[in-house]
Amino acid sequence: MSAVSEDTKPCRVLVVEDNFAVAESLRYFLDAHGFVVVAVAGNLKAALVAVEQGGFDVAVLDIRLGADVVTPAAEHLVAQAIPMIFLSGYADADVLPESLHGYPRLGKPFDPVSLIAAIRKLEGGG
């Protein structure tokens, strides 16, 4: 089950989530499943910085970051062909541009099992 078991190089994940507790939860679960959380960004500015720095294979993005929307960061990821998963409430999807509608989306509160499965799927595909 662990990400490390099949490959010596663990999968690196960028987490963008504005709520600290939720972000901590994500980090904990991802750690527990053998992923390496390279950065946790709590706002758009931090997210853009993290995307710029790179060094991750998959991004888990909360769509709304306070008053901002994660779109600029997501578009950078699209440009770099880095797979991503959106976390969102049902109605939040509308604030994303159409170009980002094809990416997998998980409802909030997230279900750890589904999240892990979704990341693995992306990892396999990428």
Binding site: N19, G107, P109
Partner: peptide, 25 residues
């Protein structure tokens, strides 16, 4: 407003869940 409320409710539930996990640990 409905969207905002949806967003907040989901976020709050996510936060409550996260707090429960963290507190529990």
């Amino acid at each position: 407003m409905a969207r905002e409320l949806d967003h907040r409710v989901k976020n709050n539930l996510a936060e409550v869940l996260a707090l429960a996990e963290q507190t529990g640990m």
